[in-house]
Amino acid sequence: MIAQQLINGLVSGAVYALFALGFTLVFGVQKLLNLAHGGVFMAGAFIAYYAVVSGVPFWAAAILGTLGAGLISVLIEIVAFRPLRARGQAEFAAIVASIGVDLILVSIAQRVSDTKVLKFPFGTFPIEFYRFWGLRISLLQIMILAIVAVLLAALVFYLKKTTFGRQVRAVAINEKAAALLGVNAKAVYFQTFFISGALAGIAGVLIGLSFNSIQFLMGEPYMLRAFVVVVIGGLGSIPGAVFASLMLGVMQTLSVAYLPNGVSEMIIFALLFVVLLFWPNGLFGGAGLSAGVGRR
């Protein structure tokens, strides 16, 4: 039974990881929180849904949702973040502007969906289960794990092994110095926002599919969970975000299974609070920014 819960937890943790990676990537590069990330996630699910109902095959719809979310994310960079960065001191302003973007995305989605909960048509994705060692795992869960593993590997390769990855890290460390060395910071921001949005988009599609429920407010709980994940993992740290996501997924499934209803929420956010106080740079170290004050 516990083993079954562990599997379920790992699967939902894997989706948290997709969501949180994009969020922490943007923070890692520009030290700003993008609170529209939940809206982008929701937009990805919406695009895929409307593609499916208008006859596009699911795999193509999922790609559309992913790319669409990536483009929306780039749009956010152009409209909301770039003007603020140009002015400097954007920490507070970026939070405000991205909340504004989120409000816009959510209310458009509410309009479009007429406040209804949308469901993918029956048969969008085959419902099949495999059993082994007394455990049950669905085809969808296997696909989710596979997609997350592939995307994660691709992201790590991209950041560690390619020229672009080196440019991203250079801009993350010091934008001005990187620009002097000929790095096109604008292109770096474009690409990080696109990757971040695309990851959120595919996460949205997968979540919409596994719960078979898509609605305009679906981003909010994931946004809140992303805070938990990126703080525990260390804001801006990619391996930290992955570990913390899996941990959160497992913890949540276990607490939902074994604790009274509603306690799991409380525990998660209390954990966030406590981690911030005692390990503000995350449990695994390596956050991109010093969290507090104190004399060295």
Binding site: I95, F273, A291
Partner: peptide, 19 residues
């Protein structure tokens, strides 16, 4: 919260509200 600054303070107070 005296130990935290900036976005970390914001996230901690957000966690407080959610709790």
């Amino acid at each position: 919260l005296a130990r935290l600054r900036g976005v970390f303070q914001a996230i901690a107070t957000l966690a407080f509200v959610e709790v």
